[in-house]
Simulated assay, not measured.
Amino acid sequence: MTDNALSPAEYDAITDAAAHWCMRLHADDCTAQERLAFERWRDAHPLHAFEYQAMLEIWDVAGDLPRPEPVVAPMVQAKPRTPWRTLGIAASVCALALPLAAYSGWNLGWLPNSYQHFEATDSVRQVTLQDGSQVELNLGSELTYSHYKDQRRVTLKKGEAFFSVTHDTTHPFVVKAGEGKIRVTGTRFNVWMYEDQVKVNLIEGSVLVSSHDDASGDGLRLRPAMQASYQQGDRVPRISQTDDHDNSLAWRSGKLVLDDLALSDALPLINRYLKQPLMIADHGTGAIRIGGVYNIKELDTLVATLPKVLPVYLTRNKDGNPVLNSTPQQSPKS
């Protein structure tokens, strides 16, 4: 069959099947036979894989559902039950396969009434969120937006984004990045993420930054020209002042500015744009300093040119990643 030949009923059946497989594959008791059956179903038609991927995105959104309070009951021998969280997510996957605004979870503040997904691959991309907020996405970046009854929620899945948030005190704007989050009502700020590292630069307004979902309070407040950074395991973000020559937003003009940085500090900024991350052999190599202005679309060529401008040479590790090694200093001849 072809996509053009599908009836509305057939489309609905595929959506229902995608929701079913999404729930089963996330269940603890999913068997190897079921996984093989899913693979056969997914590969049977391109639309199957497309609908299943859409369900996975919905599953991510539903993962933020609040957990119901457990009911205390007399202890009896019973078959192990699916955890409440999984049941809640499963219910929301089914519900989100229907018109979002009609589901009662909206009134409870559990589910969004709109959902958007954006990616930027080979060029910087500007998008408008459902609430009117503007977002610029750097190369290789991805985020989702969900509009709830009591808040607006963004998940930065990877990369970097500059936000110009529409002011709305009744619906805080929350950006989840890594293990932490940034909470605002209306402002302009930049969020950079690479692996488990996150950096937030505030341009205008104020934001509250927390480095962990379980942290107490709303987080630390930033004022304009301040920066917060955190990584996995940090209980509180590190706060610093940005100087007048801060170049963290140069990507919006297609540039990466390295201002006399140690290679160990420059590599996370460079690797954000590389298909294979560049590594350093040791602390001595990491201490070598690098500067310059580079086109973010041409950073692959930077790796090959580094031995021409720095005292380093390239090797490959067992995973095939390029590794920078410092060039041994020759002893002067006597």
Rank of each mutant, 00 (worst) to 15 (best):
A62R: 01
Y148P: 06
G186I: 00
G292Q: 06
Y115K: 06
K181S: 15
D259F: 01
G180T: 07
P112N: 00
M75Q: 11
A304N: 09
G291N: 13
D300Y: 06
N138Q: 02
R40H: 13
M75Y: 04
L263C: 12
T185M: 08
L98C: 13
R252H: 02
S146C: 06
L96P: 00
P322G: 05
T144C: 10
L87V: 04
A287Q: 13
S164Q: 13
E39N: 10
K308I: 03
D214V: 05
N107H: 12
I288G: 12
K255P: 00
W106K: 00
A95K: 09
R42N: 13
G286W: 13
G254Y: 10
E195F: 06
D300V: 01
E179P: 01
F173Y: 10
I280W: 09
K199M: 11
I239P: 00
I182C: 02
L261A: 08
L108V: 00
N190C: 10
E10M: 11
I182Y: 01
L267F: 11
I270Q: 06
G109W: 07
L111V: 03
K333M: 09
P80A: 04
S114F: 06
F189T: 05
A9W: 04
R35E: 14
M279K: 15
D244V: 08
D319W: 03
M226W: 13
M279G: 04
Q53N: 13
N113W: 10
N201T: 14
P307C: 08
E142P: 00
D259A: 14
D234M: 15
M1P: 02
